[in-house]
Every structure is written in structure tokens, then in C-alpha cells.
Design a protein around this nucleic acid. Sequence first.
DNA 1: CTGAAAGCGCTTACAG
DNA 2: CTGAAAGCGCTTACAG
Lengths: 339, 339
Amino acid sequence: MSNLTLEDIARRVGVSRSTVSRVVNNHPNISEDVRTRVLAAIDETGYQPNAAARSLASQRSQTLGLALPQTVSSFFTDPYFPHLLKGISEACNQHDYALTFFLITCKDDEKKIFPKISNKSFLDGVLVQSGHHGDQQIIGHLVDANKPLVVLGRPFRVDNVSFVNVDNVKGAYTAVSHLIRLGRRRISTITGPLASTVGLDRKEGFLMALGERGFRKNDKLIVEGDFTEQGGYYSMQTLLRENPDAVFVASDVMAIGAIRAIQESGRRVPEDVAIVGFDDIPLSTITDLELTTIRQPVIETGVRAVEVLIDLIENGTDFPQHIILDTKLVVRSSCGSKS
Amino acid sequence: MSNLTLEDIARRVGVSRSTVSRVVNNHPNISEDVRTRVLAAIDETGYQPNAAARSLASQRSQTLGLALPQTVSSFFTDPYFPHLLKGISEACNQHDYALTFFLITCKDDEKKIFPKISNKSFLDGVLVQSGHHGDQQIIGHLVDANKPLVVLGRPFRVDNVSFVNVDNVKGAYTAVSHLIRLGRRRISTITGPLASTVGLDRKEGFLMALGERGFRKNDKLIVEGDFTEQGGYYSMQTLLRENPDAVFVASDVMAIGAIRAIQESGRRVPEDVAIVGFDDIPLSTITDLELTTIRQPVIETGVRAVEVLIDLIENGTDFPQHIILDTKLVVRSSCGSKS
DNA sequence: CTGAAAGCGCTTACAG
DNA sequence: CTGAAAGCGCTTACAG
């Protein structure tokens, strides 16, 4: 079906190819009569414009790239990614762009993917999930290629790059302030990977909240995690040696592991150890405990990133846009208070 | 960078456009001398072929589509999907195809996506994750459009459609046989969604193993799950009223929930209730319990699907190929025996 | 082994 | 509001 061309439709309706093209592309200034007849012919025949011809003539591919440098194992276990993908995919669909997906696993992948991704005619713009040092290369590459680009997350180097991020510092700050307000005094944290900006930013918020309230910094109450449940479990075991009365865990998935470690050690949540997570992604309820957490708008992050990117493409906005989305404290039972 | 055309390279080297094209496309019968000089020029200039022009002339887009009808909430919580995506993405990269991603969330999406997906010039072929009744429509659509198609999973109607699937019946059969061999007598199951072929097939394997050993079918020992941890938890609570001494859970994620329910009820795994899962995807270890499970080759499923699809596209193999991958019983501690 | 030329199916000034 | 025509940048028989 549909080896039809514009020409075929034109002949059928008795107008020129140009006119059919204008109808297809919703140009103004077409007589109602002609428009109707062309549309009818398209409908009857099932005509579909040839995408390649269109791109070639218009110099637009109407497709966006998404590059996921798979620097992290949490890609397979954290619901963050599917949610992000959903937001991106929906927004693309909404705006009539297609989405081309690149999972960058190894150096070999890069060699094949880099040229594709920066190819002028192939993608109108690209989204890069980032926040690791290792990702700087691909970002640099794209910037050099002068390709419209929006980073998901905060890149290490921010100059000249647009990004959409969540306010991680403030989110963590809010979480820890909540614990302080509830009277906790030995507040610990399981961070994200400290090679990533997410990890660093949430740690910074943690330190900021404590510092402001005159807590002395205690490195033994800070353990680096990796955004996996296992990681949360082991990190918590380490922390428990220091007898914390609270823990801010930089992701809900890790919080599940942390809770397991706490309970196995014979301590109770929240009585002995209060816990706040980060994400608020639908998770298993652990026993009858519900997790207090920082909600971040993951789907919206994806949607906004697509919108910014399309704006860059279509309106040529050339100064970098930095969008920081807000988070929200969601109080449940894992801190022992509903206030 | 790279608004260069073939013509530019040709002029630079002093050959014709055709010759440069042949070098770029690795055609045989090019003198070594010319090839070297052309390659050098390409290297120096950073020339990249225009993808749209290429597609238009060759009638090939070198891109595959992946459609995920998101009929299931498990998309967000089951590591199955990221693994599948990884396999697909790697294979595409390997074979120099790009991958375009479609998440079909609602009817509205379909209206926009269907035409794109069947557009002759846009995708050379498409992969559809399937197994739900609801997916028949998109498959039918693609078959009508005569588009090279490979289904991931077993579609409800198999005629004329190629697919790559895992031997779910046999996998489940093996799991349950293992439980029988260990002397369990009240063997229950939490199935997958019974609107899906995965769910149905694994249930069939369960029934087959029991039937063969002369067990009477007991509907109370069969509860439908939904592939989520929560679902596993609640389904198990229902099953526990029947006092099973074993349970075959149709996914590892649900098994986590089931174990939680069992332990909360004061029973022990494996002493009181033995449990076998399905997937063998890296999961949190639950306490010090390790899950006996059926390993299925998820990444390989993705890889094979891509390979079959590319074969359909490039070699025009037109009889449907049905590939069934084998599973493997992985014995750990959740059944109480290492034998 | 190489080149000239037609053709892929659109878009888009330009002219009217 | 509509059409004729140039042009987007490749591939690929065809001829030599």
C-alpha cells in the first residue's frame, strides 16, 4: 500500500503537485473546495508522504535522538528510566516528531553512534541523559557539530548547553530539614554515585541542611551508593555501625534496600531509624511501611526536555536554556510523623 | 560541520560523484588508489552522507521501528523491558540500523503512530512487543501494509507472522516438575495476566506438569497476577488461605512480593512454602534467600528478533519464521534443595 | 574500474 | 489561491 506519490493525488484531483503538498502540510491560503477534495483523495487512497523525500527537500527529519550513555547499572532496575522514556515519547508523539533511541554501552558503540547522532540530515536535535564525567565527550561532540541539544540532568559543564533538571540540592535539603525538624540528631545519608551530578547535588543539599542547623560534618555518616537496591542494603549496613537515628537515601530503590538492612539488624523504622527517600516512584510497600520521600517529576522532565529541544530547532533560540523543576516532600510513615 | 556533499568530495579528489558513492558504500571494483584518496578526503573533511538523500535514492531507511503497546503497568517495574531494549539496541547498532521507538499508551497515540509505523519510506521493518489481545490490531495493520515485521513474544494469531519467543510452556513445566520432584504436594501458582500469551503459556506449563503426575486440577491454587511486586504480594495472600506447600510464580518481580506475603504470614521459605520464579533477572536478594527460577534469555530475544527482521528485509525471506528460545532451571535456596 | 545521467518524491521561492 | 520549475543529495543501471 501507498507507493502513491503527490503526483498521483494531484492527477486524481486535477490540481498541481504543489497544491497537494500545501494541503498535506496544512498551509494557509488553500480554497476550502480544493482542500476538501484533496483530503478526500488522500483518505480514499491511503496516500502517505515519503518521509525521505520530505526530509531531503525540507532539510528537516522530524526526528529527535535520545542518547543514553549507560554509565549506570541502575538503568535496568530503576523505574526512573521507563518513566523518563514515557515522558519523552509522549511529547514527541504530541509534537509529531519521531524518536530514535541510542543506548551507548561501550566504546565500540560510540564509534558507530557518534557520527549518526551528529549527522545533520538524520536528526533534527538530540536529547542526552547525562550527569557523569564520561558523558562530557558526547556532549562536546554534539556541541561541536552545532546540533540542537538538550541534556537531561545537570551536565558537569553547563556553558552553552541547555538542560532540564530537577532541583536536587533543594530536594535533599528539604528531606534532611524534615528529619531535623522531627528531632533526629544523628542523620546519615546514602548518596548516589559521586561521579554524577545527581549524586553530588543531593549530597550537597544534605550537607547544607545540616550545616545551617549547626550540625558538625561527620564523614562516617555519609556512604556512597549506586542507585540499586543491593547498594542501598550494603551501604546501610555500613552506616548502622555508626548508629544513626535517621537516613536520607538518595533514591527510593536504595531506600528499599536500606530498610531491609535496618530491619534485619533488629532496629525498627521509624522508631530507631527514620528514613526519607527520593523519587516517589510507585514502589512495593515494604511490609506496612510507607516511604516518606521527595517526589520528582520524572515524566515532566522528559516532556519539558522535548519541548525545549523543539523550541531550539524550530525557533532557533540559541542561548542555552536551563530549566530546573521543583520537587516536593511527600510525608508518609517512614519518619514516624505525619506532620 | 558537514554540509559537504558527494560532489564536494568528488571535486576535491578529482573523480566523479558515482565513484565517491561507491567508496562510501564499500562497493567492490574500485582501484585501491582511488579508494585510498577518497577515504582520505572524507576523513579530512568529516564528510557524512545525507541520510535522507540516501534513503530516497535507495528506497531504504536503514532504520527499524520498535513498538511497545504499553498494555501493562509492568513496563515501569520489570527489568525485562530494559534488558530487551538493550538486546535490540545492540543488535541494531551491530548491523548499522537505527532504532525508532514508539510507546503506545492510548488510542490517541495509535492514530498518530500507525501511519508512521507503516509508512513505507520511514521504517524498513518493525518489531512489535506483543502477546495481548489488544495488540492484534497493530499487528494486523502492519501485515496489511505488507511491512517486514517480527513480533517479540507469541502473538495470539501466529499465521503469517514471524516471532521470537521463549519456551514459556516448557519453562513453567520444568519449574513445577522441580517442585514435584522435591516432594511438594500442594503446588500453587501465581500466573501472569491471562489476557497475554506469556501468562497463558506459563499457566499451561504448570497444569501440564501437574497433570502428567496425576495431580488433580485445583482452581483455588491458581491466582492471576499482573507481573508487579504488589500483585505478587496480594495474590500470594489469597493463595495462602489454601495452605500451599509450594508456589510457581510467573515472574521474579512477583516472587519478591510473594515471599514477602509468605514471611509476613509467619511461614518460612522454603520449609513451609517452596518457591520458583521466572526470569532470573538480577534482583535484590530477599534476606538471605536466593530465588530458584527459570532463566530466560531476554537480551538474546532482542538480538534474535533484530536479526530475523533484518533477514526479512534484506533477503526478503517471506515465510514466517518462528524462533523459540530455551529456558533453564536455576536452582538456588528458595526450594530448600540444591539438587 | 569509472563517468554521465536519470531518477527517487518531496518543498518552496517565484510568478501570476 | 494556484502552478511550473528548480533543487534537496544521493544511488544505480547503462555504457564504455
